[in-house]
């Protein structure tokens, strides 16, 4: 249960000034290392899609997902654990 595994989070984000910094800043200030980050436009110009991967145990990842959902400009967060 406490095993550290790779997790992929997909975050749909409103394209507001500073929104990306707030997501990255949240992870940094809660001591999560972002292993990879991809930001892409979506069909809706008001929304961008972030795919990022982090490592952590399940509980830690649940916590950061919940914290991410507190960011005002975050629309949706989905999370899947990938094999390590």
């Amino acid at each position: 249960m406490n095993a550290v595994t790779q997790h992929t989070l997909t975050i749909m984000l409103q394209n507001e000034t500073g929104a990306l910094v707030r997501v990255a800043g949240l992870f940094a200030s809660r001591s999560y290392n972002i292993d990879s980050l991809n930001v892409a436009a979506t069909a809706d110009p008001a929304i961008s899609k972030l795919v990022l991967s982090i490592r952590g145990d399940d509980q830690a990842v649940v916590q950061i997902v919940r914290q991410t959902r507190k960011l005002i400009d975050v629309l949706e967060v989905s999370h899947q654990a990938t094999a390590d």
Binding site: M12, Q14, R69, I72, D73, V74, L75, E76
Partner: peptide, 8 residues
Amino acid sequence: PIPGYRAR
């Protein structure tokens, strides 16, 4: 519009 926040 802050649809994510409002929906939550």
